[in-house]
Design a protein around this nucleic acid. Structure first.
Length: 572
RNA sequence: GGGCGCGUGGCCUAGUCCGGAUAUGGCACUUGCCUCCUAAGCAAGUGGUCAAGGGUUCGAAUCCCUUCGCGCCCGCCA
């Protein structure tokens, strides 16, 4: 049984409170608050009990407080107004938390292994061009969630679903085959070139119905397994995908698996889905095209039809997605999708279709709102777009200037290394720190902020901890936490003790932004400690205890950054 | 027209699920701090009708209703 110290304190408090309430003959759930500074650590509000017990809250609080004894981790219980405040036994907490961190190192904060297997799909961008910042939220949320859930103890596999069938691939492929480019691509890379073909081909299709017809024929061939068409479409997608993966790798994002949409067309599973849906009582045929009537499933709006085949019999994206989800269900316990908010209706429809097919499962979905520019929504067509590659380069360049200014003493190679880690970290941090359902307006000044609530702020605290540890060569390995008596030390210990429950909370609620906030809080507390509490100049057992605290801080900061997909440099 | 989400100091943001003690933190601005383990840091200060109105409650940023503003969706696109 691996359980962190703060959780043990919390469950101890819950237990004694429940006992005390039972003794008073009160039936009430135990809900604990984090107490404000100076009021202890956990608080139990007695106000809800007032009516039931017909007593004033402060009287109840006093009765409860006097009936509860200090315990293993509970040092003091006191009534304050309508609250019962619980103070953690600090010495015990400190010793045990620091020992835990020092023993577990990069596993400090990890939860018990869970039996559920998670398949987390993210990014899944159309392979028709480079990713822009509007899209960046998806891989960053997805990858961070995957890291957090692994830390929490789940067996997580990430997956990129490649849409290599469907209209947009045909348009791109037709363009590559038939068109000549007028403009040079922004970069000498396949995806920057292919997106130009895609854009030009779209224009051609709009202007010339004959071309549109050619594309329709190509789409039909693609879906019916015409070897040449399948091969060339796949080849084009593969090239663009490789480039997208390179961009993502620069952000510390890699995928455990790639699933090609075409697989479900070729192995017949899409056909089976279509046949099953056609048999349902909700299925209706119009001009050879089939749809489901979903009004009775809570779908509302101008249109409640959900079309699953075109009149030529070919499938649609959502139909294939249905086959993909059935495949996912066979491979995992918990499927999680990271999707833009524009997919909300689609997921509702997917859930309804699954129900109609008699499948009693559906994916968990993490939705996020889009990143826009101050001028409005990002649009490749209007040239109103910031590419992720450009953002990475700009951030890295900006970081390089900072390093060069601050650290003229280190080698060029080291400067470049730190700049990369700081630049990339800043980007990830600035995306993940904001709760997913909130819209983000992209501003360069925010994206390139290296102070306050930013990755470099946290990385800097880590580098400082490393710097101390590197200079403290002679370590006994033994320490007595009772020497950590200042407020700065106590506050730092308490923040470190909260890390495991932060991980658990993020994993349970499938959200990552609290971890970013925690990183900032932890680093800020460490910086205060660093400023006011001398470590290397301290002597004897005090020095040993402080070094142990620095080492515990170092691991906690590092593990926090790792979960955020941000590297923790040892110097900067 | 219908559905979903968001609205917190000049700007960004936590807290909202599960109502409780002076509403969290950052940016910007003002002012201090490097003979002292890296100043990408620390400290202090200015700044708030928690979109608006109503309701429930001993108590509302949090729950309910209405309104307004913004985003997204309602394709034989993906």
């Amino acid at each position: 049984m691996v359980s962190d110290t703060f959780s043990r304190f919390k469950s101890e408090v819950s237990t004694v409170l429940a006992d005390a309430l039972a003794k008073l003959g009160v039936d009430s759930p135990v809900v604990l608050d984090i107490a404000p500074d100076g009021m202890g650590d956990l608080a139990f509000p007695c106000f809800p009990l007032a009516k039931q017990m017909r007593k004033a809250p402060n009287v109840i609080a006093q009765e409860l407080a006097s009936s509860i004894m200090a315990g293993d981790l509970i040092e003091k219980v006191e009534a304050k107004g309508g609250y019962v405040n619980f103070h953690v036994g600090y010495d015990g907490l400190a010793q045990s938390v620091i020992e835990d961190a020092l023993a577990r190192k990069d596993r400090y904060g990890a939860g018990e292994p869970k039996k559920d297997k998670i398949l987390l799909e993210h990014t899944s961008a159309n392979p028709t061009g480079p990713l822009h910042v509007g899209r960046a939220r998806n891989p960053i949320i997805g990858d961070t969630l995957a890291r957090v859930m692994r830390m929490a103890g789940y067996d997580v596999s990430t997956e990129f679903y490649v849409n290599d069938v469907g209209r947009q691939v045909v348009v791109m492929t037709w363009g590559v085959k038939h068109l000549k480019l007028d403009d040079e691509p922004d970069r000498d890379a396949d995806h920057y070139r292919y997106v130009l073909y895609y854009q030009k081909a779209n224009k051609c299709a709009e202007e010339d119905p004959a071309i549109l017809k050619q594309m329709d024929e190509m789409l039909y061939k693609l879906e019916h397994g015409d070897e040449e068409t399948v091969a060339i479409a796949r080849e084009n997608c593969e090239r663009v995908l490789q480039e997208i993966k390179k961009s993502m790798k620069r952000l510390n994002i890699e995928y455990d698996g790639i699933t090609w949409e075409s697989k479900f067309v070729q192995d017949g599973s899409v056909d089976r889905v279509i046949e099953a849906l056609k048999r349902s009582e909700f299925s209706v045929e119009v001009d050879g095209a089939y749809h489901l009537e979903l009004e009775s499933f809570g779908i509302s709006g101008r249109e409640t039809k959900w079309v699953f085949t075109r009149s030529d019999g070919t499938s649609l994206y959502t139909t294939r997605d249905l086959a993909y989800h059935l495949d996912k269900f066979s491979r995992t316990d918990i499927p999680i999708n990271v999707l833009g908010e524009d997919q909300k209706l689609g997921m509702q429809e997917l859930a309804a279709a699954l129900k109609i097919m008699g499948v009693d499962r559906k994916p968990d979905v993490v939705f996020y709102s889009f990143v826009s520019l101050p001028e409005g929504r990002m649009s490749t067509r209007k040239g109103r777009v910031v590419y992720i590659d450009d953002l990475i380069e700009e951030a890295t360049e900006r970081a390089y200037e900072e390093v060069k200014r601050r650290r003229p003493d280190i080698s060029e190679e080291k400067m470049r290394g730190i700049a990369r880690v700081v630049g990339v970290g800043s980007l990830r941090y600035n995306i993940i720190r904001i709760q997913a359902e909130k819209q983000i307006v992209f501003k360069w000044e925010d994206a390139l902020n290296f102070e306050g609530a930013s990755a470099p702020f946290v990385q800097y605290a880590h580098a400082r901890a490393c710097s101390i540890m590197n200079k403290a060569v002679e370590l006994s390995g033994k320490f007595d936490a009772r020497h950590l008596i200042t407020d700065h030390e106590k506050a730092l210990v308490k923040i470190i003790s909260r890390f495991p429950s932060i991980i658990e909370d993020c994993a349970d609620n499938r959200r990552a932004h609290p971890l970013a906030a925690y990183a900032q809080e932890l680093a800020a507390q460490f910086n205060q400690f660093y400023r006011y509490i001398p470590v290397l100049k301290a002597e004897g057992e005090v020095r040993e205890a402080r070094l142990a605290l620095v080492e515990a801080s170092r691991w906690t900061i590092r593990n926090t950054l790792m979960c955020l997909g941000i590297d923790a440099p040892e110097e900067m």
